[in-house]
């Protein structure tokens, strides 16, 4: 978000005035519009595509959340029925509990672990090894996302998977469980995918943030005897709060709206134990053809994710920009 604001201030090139600074009478007159026909002509294909394919669908979704809507049948207005149906659906509380679990865990895996990894790499003295570690953090990201999930499915395989092979080799046969097939464990097995969660974009984002901290800040801190863990707590963390905020927002949106991994690993099962609202949205549309109901769940998820984003935006205030290079 902060980068959006910074481009706003940079955006008026020298010798040019932004429209705000021009008096409204000149800037919004017909003459000014006609003189600028070139800019509008260049933007017109962009806006044409945006209006049809990007603006229209979410607006349509907002409206159709209040309709009964199936392909090939005229939509009928049903008021709040779709929402009432979802909130009175027996599995809903369970789905919301799952989202809370995924959220708490997602914040840990998305914010804390990448930070620890970034700090560890940041503390390395040798520039060559630093570079090597950064490279190795990227390697798992060169595997397509779906392949990573399918690989984890293999790791969890109760009969052929290495996790259970290892447990049996250690004589811990009673712990060799059907990880994705048992009601109590499946949701945690889904969370565990990607362990130890240090290879994502998060580590790179933190490394970028730590690299921006001015050397003079560290020198001043070292003079005051503030090094090591003390420095991390009192200097690094306050100065990467911008990155923390970004990753927190990503983790929240992901926990609330993402269901791709669950769809692939368990499809909500066993039973309904790993169902989340996003997957219910998906199933109601593409299996039950209830597109109005599905849009209503989409709207609910949007509202929850948006509120989370706003809370984080208010709650985390990045430290002074002057301490960066």
């Amino acid at each position: 978000m902060s980068s959006v604001q910074s481009t706003q201030t940079d955006s008026a090139p020298s010798g040019r005035l932004s429209w705000r600074r021009m008096s409204p009478s000149t800037s919004l007159s017909w003459r000014a519009f006609r003189r600028s026909w070139q800019a509008y002509a260049l933007l017109s294909p962009i806006f044409a595509l945006l209006i049809v394919f990007v603006y229209y669908p979410p607006i349509l979704g907002l409206i159709r959340a209040f309709f009964r809507w199936r392909p090939g049948v005229p939509a009928t207005f049903v008021g709040l029925d779709n929402f009432v149906t979802y909130f009175t659906y027996a599995e809903t509380p369970h789905e919301l509990v799952n989202i809370v679990k995924l959220l708490v865990f997602g914040l840990f895996a998305g914010i804390v672990m990448p930070f620890i990894m970034a700090e560890l790499i940041f503390f390395v003295r040798s520039p060559a090894l630093k570079e090597l570690y950064r490279l190795l953090v990227i390697i798992p990201m060169l595997v397509p996302g779906i392949v990573t999930v399918l690989l984890w499915q293999k790791l969890y395989d109760p009969y052929l998977g290495p996790i259970n092979d290892m447990l049996r080799a250690m004589g811990l046969d009673q712990f060799a469980l059907n990880w994705l097939g048992e009601h109590r464990i499946a949701i945690y097995a889904i969370m565990f995918v990607g362990f130890p969660w240090v290879w994502g974009v998060g580590t790179l984002i933190y490394l970028g943030g730590l690299g921006q901290i001015s050397e003079s800040v560290y020198e001043a801190a070292a003079l005051d005897g503030c090094t090591g863990v003390g420095r991390v707590m009192r200097i690094d963390i306050p100065l990467v709060l911008g990155q923390v905020r970004l990753l927190a927002i990503l983790a929240i949106i992901n926990a609330i709206t993402a269901f791709q991994n669950i769809l692939v690993l368990t499809d909500g099962g066993p039973g309904f134990s790993t169902m989340v609202p996003g997957l219910t949205m998906f199933h109601s549309a593409f299996r039950a053809q209830k597109f109005g109901y599905s849009s209503a769940i989409g709207l609910l998820l949007f509202i929850i994710a948006m509120s989370g984003t706003l809370i984080i935006n208010r709650g985390i205030r990045p430290a002074n920009e002057e301490l960066r290079q």
Binding site: R20, A39, V54, Y55, P58, W69, S295, G298, L301, F302
Partner: peptide, 29 residues
């Protein structure tokens, strides 16, 4: 430089805030 430059720019950038979950189903339709 043209009238409504910044409002048009923000009309585009604001779309970054719309999560795909809201558009997925209606976009399919």
């Amino acid at each position: 430089r043209f009238p409504l430059r910044e409002p048009l720019y923000y009309a585009i950038i604001a779309l970054l805030m719309v999560p795909w979950v809201l558009s997925f189903i209606p976009a399919y339709m």
